[in-house]
Each structure stands twice: as C-alpha cells, then as structure tokens.
Amino acid sequence: MEINFCGRRALVTGAGKGIGRETAKALRKTGAEVVALSRSYEDLESLARECPGVQTICVDLADWSATEKALSSIGPVDILVNNAAVAILQPFLAVTEEAFDRSFAVNVKAVLHVSQIVVHQMIERGVPGAIVNVSSQASQCALLDHSVYCSTKGALDMVTKVMALELGPKKIRVNSVNPTVVMTEMGRVGWSDPQKSKPMLNRIPLGRFAEVEDVVHSILFLLSDKSSMITGSCLPVDGGFLAC
C-alpha cells in the first residue's frame, strides 16, 4: 500500500527525537513539505542536516504566547502530528504541582492550542485536513508511578474524540495512536533491565515492545487517504496489551 503526501504540508511537534523525528523524516520521504517543531535547537539542527528541506521551529510548547508567536506565520498546513510530550513519573503521593502543571501544559493544553492554530487556517482555506495525536496505552490502563502521565493521555484521547466530532463537518479527521513502550533511544535505556521489562512484556501477547517504525507506519496510515473514513479513533499500537 503506497502512501504519498506530495503537495501536502505537514507540521510535526516533538520532532527532535524518537517518534516525532522519524515521523518527520518519513513524511518528507513520502513527498510532504515538513515543518519540524522542537524545544531543542540542537536536535532541530541535526534533523535539518539529516533530512534536507525540513523547515524547523524552536519553541517550548508549554509557553502559550511563545507558541502563538512562533506559529503565527507558519503558513498553510494540511497534516498535523501532535507528538510532543513529557513523561514525569512520580508515585501518586509524591506528585508535585510543578510536574502536574508541566505535564498537562505540554501533553494536553499544547495539543489543543497548536491544533486550534492549524485548524483555523485549514477552515479559512476551505481544505480538508488530517490530525494525529500521539497518545499512549497509558490512557486506558493504570500504571505504577504514572498517575499524572496516565491522566494526561486519558484527557488527550477525549480531546481527540471531541475534535473529531466538531471538525468532521469541516472535513478534518482527527485520530490518535496509542503505543505501548516504544524502543526509542530513551526507551531502550529505560527498559533494558529484564527485571523491569519482563512484567510488562508478559502482558503483551506479541511478546515484544514496539519499534519506532511500528508507530510511524500507523501515523502515516491515519494521516493518509487510505483511512479516509476513520476519525475519532484511538488506535492501539501495543501488541495486544489492552486486549488482556
């Protein structure tokens, strides 16, 4: 199944590393003009060297006014991937106000804000659009020390559904992908200890964690015309974790 985004312009947040970076590269490879957003200037510089032609924007999405300013002249966007997120893990009784506020600011509020900016210009242009929000299996399953993270992803799933409901009449589709543990560079470090990984792997029928390309392929499908009748879905990319 060939997917082609020639003639379309994509914005990917959290594009400096991991899923966001590989999504930006994959979109570019399939013909899209790509705008990559990250709060790390160094990551954006290396992405631009690795993937010539990618436009970069450096901004911390937790800063509402800075985001507004950074995206005010972004130009037309046909495809949006809201990937930027933070994972601050604390036991429930040790959750801090700072961790709570930053987690919701990036994982939920920034998604709403960036989407508003992009959707307004989609509607003004009178064009259809596709949005994918990168959520998590943690939106639907309680995990130790993840009370805030799980809450943000649960909120993100509901934001996704409401966006789909309200934007469908405008021909703008909105879905999420909900991965299990993903073997990004950080994921490999965090889950390399068998004592930590074995209990989680035992809950995944396919017996492995997700590779980055597993998530990227799912994102591309949901952005493409191959999924033109899919909106408001939260697609598990979890090897069956949520089926158990």
Score class of each variant (00 low, 15 high):
Ser38Lys: 05
Ser139Cys: 07
Ser227Asn: 15
Gln90Trp: 05
Ser136Gln: 08
Ala110Lys: 11
Ala94Tyr: 04
Val119Ser: 05
Val182His: 08
Val132Ile: 08
Met163Gln: 08
Ser197Thr: 00
Leu44Ser: 03
Gly187Arg: 04
Leu80Trp: 01
Met122Leu: 10
Phe5Cys: 10
Val134Met: 13
Leu47His: 02
Glu22Lys: 15
Ala15Leu: 03
Phe100Ser: 11
Leu89Trp: 08
Val127Ala: 05
Val106Trp: 09
Cys6Glu: 12
Val81Thr: 04
Arg9Phe: 00
Ile79Arg: 01
Asn178Gln: 13
Val181Trp: 12
Ser73Cys: 11
Asn107Val: 03
Thr56Arg: 14
Val148Gly: 03
Leu44Cys: 08
Lys29Asp: 14
Ala62Gly: 15
Ala85Leu: 04
Glu50Gln: 13
Ala94Cys: 08
Glu211Arg: 15
Val118Ala: 11
Thr30Gly: 05
Glu45Val: 14
Arg28Val: 01
Phe92His: 11
Val174Pro: 12
Leu223Ile: 05
Val181Ile: 14
Val34His: 13
Gly20Gln: 04
Lys171Phe: 02
Cys6Pro: 10
Val106Asn: 13
Trp191Phe: 14
Gly16Val: 01
Val174Met: 05
Asn83Ala: 09
Val59Asn: 15
Glu124Leu: 11
Glu68Arg: 14
Gly75Lys: 00
Trp64Met: 06
Ala62Lys: 10
Ser192His: 08
Trp64Cys: 08
Ala85Tyr: 03
Val159Asn: 01
Leu80Tyr: 01
Met186Asp: 06
Ser151Arg: 07
Asn175Met: 01
His146Arg: 09
Val189Met: 09
Glu124Gln: 14
Pro194Thr: 03
Thr184Glu: 01
Gln140Met: 09
Lys170Ala: 13
Leu156Ile: 01
Thr13Asp: 04
Glu211His: 15
Asp78Tyr: 00
Val127Ser: 05
Asn83Asp: 10
Ala105Ile: 02
Val12Met: 02
Ala105Glu: 10
Val134Trp: 11
Ser73Glu: 13
Val134Thr: 10
Asn133Pro: 09
Ile117Tyr: 05
Tyr149Thr: 11
Gln140Trp: 01
Ile230Tyr: 09
Val34Ser: 10
Gly126Glu: 08
Lys25Val: 14
Leu165Gln: 07
Ala10Phe: 11
Pro194Asn: 05
Pro169Trp: 09
Val177Gly: 06
Asp60His: 15
Asp157Trp: 00
Asp43Ile: 00
Ile57Tyr: 00
Asp214Gly: 15
Cys244Leu: 08
Gln140Leu: 05
Val237Ala: 10
Ala105His: 07
Val118Phe: 10
Glu98Gln: 13
Asp225Tyr: 04
Glu33Asp: 15
His113Val: 09
Arg173Met: 04
Thr96Tyr: 11
Ser136Val: 03
Cys234Thr: 08
Val114Tyr: 07
Met229Pro: 06
Glu33Phe: 10
Asn107Lys: 06
Val189Ser: 10
Lys171Trp: 01
Pro199Arg: 02
Ser136Phe: 06
Val159Gly: 01
Gly53Gln: 02
Cys141Ser: 15
Arg203Cys: 05
